[in-house]
Design a protein around this nucleic acid. Structure first.
Length: 272
DNA sequence: CAGGTC
DNA sequence: ACTGG
């Protein structure tokens, strides 16, 4: 167990920001639980800081990078044009949200499942896929959790099995994309080193991955902060507040972070 | 109608 | 076009 005081870190907001679907309130309340990188982590508020149930070594090598704590999000917030009332409000509403450094394969699976769905259903579907095809592992208390299935494990599943989990028409997309990744076409590990546009183009070749899902994988799985996914909510937001276009040049290099803040604001607007 | 894709 | 909040 370790204690940390962290700037711009709000687990409650990160948990339902829609970038990660395996980050949920603890059943007993008062904290958050997360399954990622083949591990389980619990986060509990402790005065002006947080308690993390991991070793200092795990914090250093796994969770500190996962939460992207080397990046200065306050600087991104400070760069917002003060005359932009909409984005100023969005950033205030989403203060404490960071872009997690999630696994690219996990985000590929999650966002293939995300199309024409909603956060509660995506969460359920992803959990069902992990339970059915993912490797079980135990936390230090002996509780069993399930990792994201390997591409090979998902490619071996039948469309009927996947539909039985409630994935609907996304089942064949997921299966076919898994087969492609298992064959190394494309090699997800190598995408991280590519510039955003090249990585985006490679992801677009996957079945069930269009412009929007590819942008989500770039932003949340490859940490390309230039990626700016445009979904139905962001489309409405752009039409309502940026009729002359979103100022991408001004926010070059981190526009995706502001996209996430606008998305959060559209969903929860002032309620958190 | 839902964080779209083919 | 699956399915459910």
């Amino acid at each position: 167990m370790i204690r940390q005081q962290l700037a711009w870190f709000d687990p409650a907001r990160i948990g339902h920001s829609g970038q990660c679907f395996r980050f949920a309130p603890l059943p007993e309340g008062g904290g958050w639980g997360l399954t990622a990188r083949g591990r389980r982590l619990c986060i509990r508020p402790d005065g002006d800081g947080f308690l993390f149930d991991c070793t200092p070594e795990e914090w250093e090598t796994v969770w500190y990078p996962y939460f992207d704590l080397d990046t200065d999000y306050e600087a991104f917030a400070a760069a917002v044009n003060p005359r932009d009332a909409y984005m100023t409000a969005a950033v205030a509403c989403a203060a404490g949200v960071r872009i997690l450094r999630q696994d690219p394969w996990e985000t590929t699976v999650a966002f293939i499942l995300s199309q024409q769905s909603n956060i509660p259903r995506i969460t359920r579907n992803l959990e069902a896929v992990c339970r059915a095809y993912g490797a079980p592992f135990a936390d230090r208390e002996g509780n069993i959790w399930y990792d994201i299935p390997t591409p090979a494990a998902l490619a071996a599943a039948s469309e009927e099995e996947l539909r039985a989990l409630g994935l609907g028409y996304r089942a064949p997309y997921l299966r076919a994309a898994a087969a492609r990744i298992a064959a190394g076409q494309p090699d997800l590990a190598s995408l991280a080193a590519m510039p955003y546009k090249k990585a985006h183009a490679a992801l677009l070749t996957l079945p069930g991955v269009g412009v929007k899902v590819a942008d989500c994988v770039c932003l949340f799985g490859l940490h390309k902060l230039d990626a700016f996914p445009i979904d139905t909510h962001i489309r409405q937001m752009l039409d309502a507040h940026y009729k002359r276009g979103f100022p991408m040049r001004r926010y070059k290099g981190f526009a995706g972070v502001l996209q996430q803040y606008a998305f959060y604001y559209e969903l929860y607007g002032g309620k958190t």
